[in-house]
Design a protein around this nucleic acid. Structure first.
Lengths: 201, 201
DNA sequence: TTCCCCATGTAAGACGTTACATGATTTC
DNA sequence: GAAATCATGTAACGTCTTACATGGGGAA
C-alpha cells in the first residue's frame, strides 16, 4: 500500500478512536506545518480502511439534528500495517518547487518580477518562522516525553527549513539587486521583442 | 490555467524549439534538483498546448526507423501566457513531508526506526549537497549572464536547503540518541502490547 | 551481448482538490 | 446578526504516475 492519506489516518487513529472530523482538525491544528489533508479525501479513505479491515467503525447517536458521528478505531491488522509501513525506508519524493521554476525562467520575466517573488517568499517564510519559533518555545519543557519530543522535532525541522529559505532569499536578492541592476541590458540578449513591464502590485 | 507541467514546458520551449524528448531530458539533466516531469504526462500536455495554439508543431523526417521527431516552438500567445503566469504570485503549496510524518508517528515505531530514517535522510541530503556544491563551483564565473545567474540561484537554493536538512538531522539525532536511549521505557506508556522489533537493515 | 540512447505515444488508474449540500448550535 | 464550529459525505474534475508498446543504432 502506498496511499499517504491512508497512512496518515492510520497513524492518527493509532493514538485513539477518531472521527473524520477529528482527523481533519488534528491535521490542520497540529500537523499543518508538515502535512495536509483535504476534506474530500479523508472520508473516502476512512471508508476504504474500514472495508479493508484496518479500522473498525462505530456510530454515535447524533446530537440535535447533526449528522451521526462515526468513530473509527484501529484494528490489529491496521496496527500491523502501520508498523510495517513506518519501518519501510522512505523513497525521496521528486521535488516540484514552483518558486525555483519561476526563478529559472527569470530571463523571460525580467529581474523585477523575480525579485518580487523572492521578497514575497521571504516574507512568507519569515511569518512561518515566527509562528514555529513560538510553538517551539511552548514545546521546550525540561523533561519531555517521547510524543512531545517527536512533535518538537517536526517543529525544529520547520524552523531549520524556514531559516535556510530566508538565508537563500537574502543571498539571491543581493545577487540580483547589485549586479543585474547595473547592467540590466543583459536581458535584451533574449529573443523577446517587447520590453518587460515593471512589476508593481 | 494552472497546470504546472504545461507551464514548465512553455518556459523551456520559450528558449527555442524542442521535442518531447528534449524536454524530458532537459528536466532530468538540468532541473532535476527542483523540478520533475514524468514521461507519460509531457506528451499529452504538448498536444494540449499545441491544440490551444500556444505551441506550433513541425515534424522532422525520421532517421532510420525511429519515430518522427516533433519539434514544438512557442507562439506569441504562448509567450504571452508564459509571461503572464510568471508574473502571477505564487500560492504556497501545502506541505507533505513524509519523513516528518514518520518522525511524528515515532511512538508507534520506536526510536530505533526513527533514528534509522533520519540517518538515511541525512546521507541522501549529504549526497545531494556534494553534487550541488560541485555544480555550484562550475557555475561560479567572474561575469555570469542572466541565465547563468538564475540557474545558479536554483542550485544555491538546493545547497541551503540540503545544509539545513543536515543540520536538523544532527540536532534530531542528538535529541533522540542521548535522552531517549537512557529512558527507553517511555515507549511502554503507549497502548502497544508487543515489544518493538529492532530495525536492522 | 547487453545495455543505454533515441523517440514517440497510449491506457488505466491512483491520488487529490474543489465545490456542493445540509443545518443546528455556540460564540463574538 | 454574523460567523465559526460541528459533522457528514458526494460528484466532478484535474493532475500525475506507472506500465506498456515499438525498435533500430551505438557504446562498453
Amino acid at each position: 500500500m502506498n496511499n499517504r492519506t491512508e497512512l496518515a489516518i492510520l497513524g492518527l487513529v493509532a493514538d485513539g478512536p477518531r472521527s473524520g472530523y477529528d482527523i481533519r482538525k488534528e491535521v490542520s491544528d497540529t500537523l499543518s506545518h508538515f502535512w495536509n489533508e483535504s476534506t474530500g479525501h479523508v472520508y473516502p479513505m476512512l471508508a476504504r480502511l474500514h472495508k479493508r479491515g484496518l479500522l473498525t467503525r462505530s456510530t454515535e447517536a447524533s446530537h440535535s439534528g447533526r449528522p451521526p458521528r462515526h468513530l473509527y478505531a484501529i484494528t490489529e491488522d491496521g496496527l500491523a500495517e502501520l508498523t510495517q509501513w513506518l519501518a519501510e525506508p522512505i523513497e525521496p519524493a521528486p521535488p516540484r518547487l514552483e518558486i525555483l521554476l519561476k526563478v529559472y525562467f527569470g530571463v523571460h520575466a525580467g529581474v523585477d518580477v523575480v525579485i518580487e517573488h523572492i521578497e514575497r517568499y521571504k516574507a512568507s517564510r519569515q511569518l512561518l518562522l515566527n509562528i514555529l519559533a513560538s510553538v517551539d518555545k511552548e514545546l521546550t519543557t525540561p523533561r519531555p516525553n517521547a510524543r512531545q519530543t517527536y512533535l518538537r522535532l517536526t517543529v525544529r525541522a520547520g524552523i531549520h527549513s524556514a531559516k535556510s529559505a530566508i538565508a537563500w532569499c537574502d543571498e539571491a536578492l543581493e545577487m540580483l539587486k547589485a549586479p543585474l541592476a547595473r547592467r540590466r541590458g543583459v536581458v535584451k540578449d533574449s529573443k523577446r521583442k517587447k520590453p518587460r513591464k515593471t512589476y508593481k502590485p
